[in-house]
Design a protein around this nucleic acid. Structure first.
Length: 490
RNA sequence: CGGGGUGUAGCGUAGCCCGGUAUCGCGCCACAUUUGGGAUGUGGAGGUCGUAGGUUCGAAUCCUGCCACCCCGACCA
């Protein structure tokens, strides 16, 4: 059926790569580990940005932009932070090239930087260095800043969208007068992410906290949303960190309270990246290609005319010219593909591959009967409907698709949260059913690492509002008060 | 950084062992017939065979160095 897409069941990883390439989302660049995000893929990112950006503004944040380069000394100021990122930093050491006399361009060794610059893997340090100058009084708080940026993490292995050397993201950085406010902010932004994932991406997520071992370098607490992909592996879709006073202390950011006391401010940081596009692909798509939730689809409706003569095309086009404004008035993005260079069957396949939620096909027969053929991408069902009130019908269908995609993913997710009560059971689940495994854990990093070493499964999170129950750790047999979610992860 | 691959037209490839400047498919261009699920025919364009050396009368092919990318592992969002 679908040309050139490996079946999901045959090779999930290859299926994913095929979709990214064939749906024209991105391609490998000539730069190792870096991708080119192509226009269609980028427009999905733009849609995500637009929604998230509005949500950030609605919660009081302002956008700003900080430098790509961070002086090495800044990094050294927060011990856990530098340790966490040290192994994956690109470093700028020189600022000039020269011709070596043989026609080769080489680094000019005389142009060595006094202090090396780190290409930001995240911006806490440069931002907190800057915040020092922005905060003096409680009146300056809370400071709620977001930036849209690229970052670089020198990963050893990369995968399109899921892990690339350079990627795009947003990072929020906030400063507060009290610990409680900073924690509330951390939780608020986690909710923003969860809401975005569930209501826009149609991606059900588990809200939770990371274990000490999985925590962000420099944070006191890391919250996350975890999603489940169709192959049963988990993917972290967003994180929000309570940073305590770690960075405020490292960069000496203090404020005077109403009572005249001087104290370090409290901080949060939070981010989501282009990795979300990877999540979107892996959560919903099928062997025919990408499946996009209508709310994030760059093109929500495509109209394909089927005609034999110019007169027939003109007839259809006249109808479409009246339909398109009605759809646009309802906020629906629509494309009329009247290219004469491709045949209808080709277009059908192409838009399915690209995940366009609704296809409208109109031929001579439809024009006679005052109908159109509607095809929905999620179920691949087709129906013939009246041209009368079509825009309303389509708007409803888009909502229905959004809902259906979510429900399908939710059912899958719920069916793939399984309790394990022994290590044998745990291992059998990992190798068989996969998905999240809810199991008792003794709370030690030692046990967590042992399990990871032996099974490659990690603790994805301790769900928020987790049910408390007595039990014993599946690995050590020590007492435990709650189950945590394990999974193999991306 | 270890292990494994690959580099030949825009893409995917054959040829390499056994040296004689290159195969096939897709795509592209033109024209015609087509158009309700990835059209067909005819004609055509397109290549410093990753790169630098070496061996040879002659190198995609043999030898050496280099570069790049992909996959698997350790690391990670």
């Amino acid at each position: 059926m679908s040309k050139g897409i490996t079946s999901k069941n045959e090779d999930y990883s290859q299926w994913y790569n095929d979709i990214v390439i064939k749906a024209d989302l991105a391609e490998h660049s000539s730069v190792k580990g870096c991708m080119v995000i192509k226009p269609y893929g980028y427009s999905i990112w733009e849609k995500m940005q637009a929604v998230l950006d509005q949500k950030f503004k609605d919660t009081g944040h302002s956008n700003a932009y900080f430098p790509l380069f961070i002086p090495k000394s800044f990094f050294s100021k927060e011990a856990a932070h530098v340790e966490g990122f040290a192994t994956e930093c690109a470093v700028v050491t020189h600022y000039r090239l020269k011709n070596d006399g043989n026609g080769n361009i080489i680094v000019d060794e005389t142009a060595k930087l006094e202090e090396e610059l780190i290409v930001r893997p995240t911006s806490e340090t440069i931002i907190w260095n800057t915040f020092k100058g922005w905060v003096q009084s409680y009146r300056d708080l809370p400071l709620l800043i977001n930036q849209w940026a690229n970052v670089v993490r020198w990963e050893m292995r990369t995968r399109l969208f899921l892990r690339t050397t350079e990627f795009l993201w947003q990072e929020g950085h906030t400063a507060h007068a009290t610990s409680q406010e900073a924690v509330e902010e951390t939780e608020r932004m986690l909710d923003v992410y969860a809401d975005f994932a569930e209501n826009w991406m149609a991606l059900p997520v588990v809200r939770g906290k990371k274990t000490a071992n999985e925590r962000f370098a420099g944070a006191l607490d890391t919250y996350c949303i975890e999603a489940l992909m169709q192959d049963g592996k988990a993917l972290q879709a967003g994180t929000s960190h309570f940073l305590g006073q770690n960075f405020a202390k490292a960069f000496d950011v203090k404020f005077t309270s109403k009572e005249g006391k001087i104290d370090h401010v409290w901080a949060s940081s939070w981010g989501v990246s282009t990795r979300l596009i990877g999540a979107l692909i892996m959560a919903h798509s099928d062997d025919a290609g990408l499946v996009l939730p209508p709310k994030l689809a760059p093109i929500q409706v495509v109209i394909v005319p089927i005609y034999k003569s110019d007169a027939a095309l003109e007839n259809i086009s006249n109808f479409v010219d009246k339909l398109m404004p009605k759809l646009k008035a309802l906020g629906i993005s629509v494309k009329y593909d009247d290219r004469d260079t491709q045949r209808p069957g080709f277009k059908f396949a192409e838009y399915e591959l690209k995940g366009v939620p609704v296809r409208v096909a109109i031929g001579a027969r439809d024009m006679e009967n005052q109908t159109v053929e509607l095809a929905r991408r999620d179920t691949r069902e087709k129906q013939t409907v009246s041209q009368d009130g079509l825009e309303i019908h389509i708007a409803q269908l888009l909502n229905e698709i959004q809902e259906n995609i979510y429900n399908k993913a939710e059912t899958f997710r719920d069916e793939h949260i399984t309790e394990a009560n022994s290590y044998e059971e745990f291992q059998a689940l990992l190798d068989g059913k996969t998905g999240f495994i809810a199991a008792h854990w003794d709370g030690t990093t030692e046990t967590e690492l042992k399990i990871k070493e032996e099974t490659k499964a990690t603790i994805r999170c301790i769900p928020l509002n987790n049910k408390q129950e007595e039990g014993i750790c599946i690995y050590s047999g020590k007492p435990s008060t709650q189950r945590v979610l394990f999974a193999r992860a991306y």
